[in-house]
Simulated assay, not measured.
Amino acid sequence: MLATATKVFATAVLVVAISEVAKRSSLMGAVLASIPLTSVLAIIWLYADTGSTEKVADLATGVFWLVLPSLVLFITLPLLLRAGVPFAPSLIGAAALTVACYFLMLGILKLFGIAI
């Protein structure tokens, strides 16, 4: 239980730190947010918990394939916001489109026999 609480705390601190940096500098916030820190933390936690390099390799492969559809959020959200759509509907619309792209990507991967 302590290990799980430590993981949650460390991850939460990271997210809050990035948002605080972004308040001062959009560029620095973007740089920090674009580094796959969450993925690296998940990989570290997974390896610490299981000791399995195979599980780590599977996770890293899955993250690679699913980063592609996640880019839809970062394209759609600023387009909607700059078009004058309010924040909440923009975020919901961009997230919904991203989820649809995740399912599309999973279908494409399955079509090519790539299991993640």
Rank of each mutant, 00 (worst) to 15 (best):
A3M: 10
T4H: 11
A5S: 14
A5H: 05
V8L: 14
V15D: 04
E20F: 03
L27R: 08
G29F: 09
V31D: 05
V31K: 11
L32T: 01
A33G: 14
I35C: 14
L37R: 04
L37F: 09
T38K: 06
T38G: 15
V40Y: 12
A42V: 03
I43H: 07
W45H: 11
A48S: 13
T50R: 12
T53A: 06
K55A: 11
V56G: 05
A57K: 09
A57Y: 11
D58H: 04
D58Y: 03
D58G: 09
L59V: 12
L59C: 08
V63Y: 05
F64L: 10
V67S: 07
P69C: 07
P69Q: 00
P69T: 00
S70I: 01
V72R: 03
V72E: 00
L73E: 02
L73S: 00
R82E: 10
V85T: 03
A88Q: 00
S90H: 02
L91A: 13
A94H: 00
A96K: 01
L97M: 08
L97V: 02
T98W: 01
V99L: 09
C101E: 00
F103Y: 11
L104A: 15
I108P: 09
L109G: 12
K110D: 14
L111E: 13
F112T: 11
F112N: 10
G113Q: 13
I116N: 03
I116E: 14
